[in-house]
Design a protein around this nucleic acid. Sequence first.
RNA 1: GGUCCGGUGGCAGAGUGGUGAUGCAGCGGACUGCAAAUCCGCGAAUGUGGGUUCGAUUCCCGCCCGGACCUCCA
Length: 449
Amino acid sequence: MIQIKLHNTRTRRREAFTPIDPGHVKVYVCGPTVYDRAHLGNARPVVVFDVLIRLLRARYPRVTYVRNITDVDDKINARFLETGEEISEITTRTTQWFHDDMEALGALPPDVEPRATAHIPEIIAIIQRLIQGGHGYEAQGHVLFAVDSDPDYGKFSGRSTDELIAGARVEVAPYKRAAGDFVLWKPSPDELPGWDSPWGRGRPGWHIECSAMSWKHLGTDFDIHGGGSDLIFPHHENEIAQSTCAFPGSHFARYWVHNAMLLVNGEKMSKSRGNFLTVEEVLHQAPGEALRFLLLKTHYRSTLDFTDSTIAEAKRELDRFYRALELHSAVTPADEVPDVFLVALADDLNTPAAIASLHRFADAALAGDAKAAASLKAAGSILGILRQAPSAWFSDGIDQTTLHKLVVARNSARERKDYAEADRIRSEIESRGIVIEDGPNNSYTLRKR
RNA sequence: GGUCCGGUGGCAGAGUGGUGAUGCAGCGGACUGCAAAUCCGCGAAUGUGGGUUCGAUUCCCGCCCGGACCUCCA
């Protein structure tokens, strides 16, 4: 029985993971705001937490994974005001894009995918609790959270409220009692999405949504809360303040897991730098599985640099794994995922070390060990890779009938030892992005370059 | 300015107070008509200056460099 260890942002240390209820592990991860195509940075937490969920499911009998959709937000409104497209169309279409992209990355859907707009009653209920408890106040149609009312505010992200005020780079709204107070509810004009509330027509602030949705679907106390490290402050700090103040005595999430940021060619992605890469764009240059594997080749708490060469390398490594599986295409996956792999993965999701063990299995499989091939496949399934048939991996999208004529012509050239012609045909095949590998007796294998 | 993280071979990327994983690339060899794939083998690294220690890449301090957060952000 392996012991899973996780780096807990709350304590800044690696801790043994002990669920509140070993019979039912509960996980919440912050999902996307649906206003545009998912970018590579969005993909990292999805893949990282997908592996964590697969690991938890291998270890515990029941795991509930909740990942929200934020479908009411300034950016969505801005898109509407800019293009005139209906809000619901924007959010529905963008959500579908997100689902398509994440499926291409081999990420399992969460058990519950709550939308913020479907949880307005819960949001209002929490805000009312906060007001009643002296943690929220109304001002000019807004409801704000009073950070001074929570002695623990700032502890999670390691900041004092003094620092927050001193470091504030944003002009403080005049209706705030303290500079660090943040919005729970704000007024919304008629042309923008809004809901009736005790404070007039308005819409929820961003942070309160996650407090409401995690409460609704996981309760006031649950095991793991995940997200990108850029959410530690203010988003997660605020979630903790809201949830623990609304439900005195509760602890909200026990373990906080944050993935590090992703760079493109050494730089943070941003539209102004022109290096903003969407998942869809990358899927044009490499299979989703290669992108997934690339995301797992770096430990989740380290900055990851995406480049053309790292994605190409990820694909080459998978090629070798699939060759090893191809050699034993008849084997069924082992029921048991090898311990050496699980131990590495359980150690704060050390995917690079776990992948190193995959290479050992591949070595053995290529040397003829069928059991190693089964282990490779079983371990791969925890990482969410190596799930397709090797033939599909190598030849997906290749028009076999068109190529067959070329291959036959090349083989006959080889038989009459006209190697110049044989090489010419090989170049022609390769010009289509296909590599041909000769086997014995004129057999051959085609694979994508 | 404040808070925090990191600097490992050509590149990517783990771990560790006591011979520095793994992969990609490169080089030599086997195999091949030639390749590809596979196999065998090879070279190659802990930013810098101190400290603690029998011993530091690992712990502590300074410095240099890079990055993140403090504002919407995965």
